[in-house]
Amino acid sequence: MDPTSDPKPIAGASNERVGHDGLVLVADDDPDVRELVAFRLERDGFEVMAAADGEAALELMQRRRPTAAVLDVMMPGLDGYEVTRRMRSSPELAEVPVILLTASVQEAAVTRGFEAGADDYVKKPFSPAEFIDRVKRAIEQRRSEPSL
């Protein structure tokens, strides 16, 4: 979680395609999951700002616009869907790619996520390597098609 820690090269499939200069917001109420996601992002050179709930996440993003946001769906206060909706209706955060983390096995949860304006979703539990791929792909897609 230390933003100054050196990016360490690791064996990854697609980590060369994205510059290691992004700032990623991570919001999850479970500290272990939050740290896992942050650790994996930081190892690929991202700077991470972490929040334990939706309100804190929005506050952090209003202070510093991130390159991407990783939001847990089930969070106290504002849930992941609501944070996504608010980002989409805010001029500064509308174009920030959002990756939802969902513990639900139901299709409806995925549909709800896309309806709220998410770019992608990752089902818990997930492989950290695959997760980092998804984040990078979402960022790249937004870069190539900014109007999405």
């Binding site: 479970d30 999951v33 896992l36 950290p128």
Partner: peptide
């Protein structure tokens, strides 16, 4: 589902980091 998958996320995730 949430309560089962949250600890599983940590177990699967951290185990993958450790095995890498």
């Amino acid at each position: 589902s949430h309560e089962l998958r949250t600890p599983l996320t940590s177990i699967v995730g951290y185990v993958e980091l450790l095995s890498e």
